[in-house]
Write a protein that binds this DNA or RNA. Structure first.
Lengths: 164, 164
DNA sequence: CGGAATAAGTTGACGCTTCAAGCGCTTCTA
DNA sequence: TAGAAGCGCTTGAAGCGTCAACTTATTCCG
């Protein structure tokens, strides 16, 4: 790891330590919700029928199913989301309620203003482009890794089982 | 917020959701420590005498004093760090023990390999340069915000006091 | 000098995330 | 068609972070 890489690494660590903390703190203060919860609600609001199966929601929101289940319970308690037992077997859907949609409409602009202030106001258009490219590549690797990891694990489990 | 910015934002959120999770998970599994704890120990190890006052450690590690106090307690329980009441008044120092240093020597390479795999292996040298530049600018803004906030608060408090 | 403000650090409670275990539908497959 | 395996989801406990309150030492200032 050369000098430039090390210094880039320190900066990256700084960003993913400070930025989520800043966003969470602001959303918590001004809207009583987490950044993750906000992301979940945004994902729901972008669907035509404002609903999504938990399994898919987990992928979109980059979270585990377990985490999502807890989060949906909290959002349900606040009346922003409702669980719906889907018609097909074990599927569970999360529906954004009207109250949840209104909350989102009220919160969105506040949050976006903060994002703009903390991120895009300090970057030139070329830097934005570079940011998108770099994070895109890192994420591809991360998601790839997960995919490979799961497949690998399953394959391993299967072969282990066969060998017994 | 235009289209390119929005897409860059989604990628950035993905990165700071997935990357810390991946790093924490690996460090937890293979070394029984958090990424933040690792960072704290690295910071200590870089000092000539392997010690740092908590207040300064907090700045270096991008964490609150409270968080640090808890973390140091945990590290102390594992024998990797020792608290030392400094000679000057209320200062408290954190000392990296020999055991802690050895642990760090054993863990460092494992972690760095993962960092390389997840981040630098997927980036070209130009992208590394861009990453450093962009995150550097964002962090400057974030720290500035804090700095301004504190200075602002103090100035406000002072002027309020004077006006009474 | 003496009291107020401040700075450094600690603590405990509360909320969120993770991890492991478990439950109940499906879908294979023998 | 019955049993096994897998999937989608839930749950409870344990660990970590944050916040607010508190303690103690220090500095400022009249």
């Amino acid at each position: 790891m050369n000098h430039r890489e090390w210094s880039a690494w320190l900066q990256l660590v700084g960003t993913f330590t400070l930025l989520p903390a800043a966003l969470d703190s602001q959303l918590q203060r001004e809207a009583g919700m987490t950044h993750f919860e906000f992301g979940v609600m945004v994902a729901l609001s972008r669907q035509p029928d404002r609903r999504l199966q938990l399994k898919d929601l987990a992928v979109v929101a980059n979270g585990s199913l377990s985490r999502l289940s807890h989060v949906i319970s909290r959002l349900e308690r606040r009346g922003w989301v409702r669980r719906t037992s889907g018609t097909k077997g074990r599927a569970t859907y999360a529906d954004l309620t009207d109250k949840g949609f209104q909350k989102l409409m009220a919160t969105g602009p506040i949050h976006l203003r903060e994002v703009r202030r903390l991120v895009f106001d300090v970057l030139t258009p070329e830097e934005v482009k570079a940011l998108k490219q770099v994070t895109g590549r890192i994420n591809a690797g991360l998601l790839d890794g997960i995919g490979l990891g799961e497949l690998g694990r399953r394959a391993r489990d299967r072969s282990r089982r066969q060998s017994c």
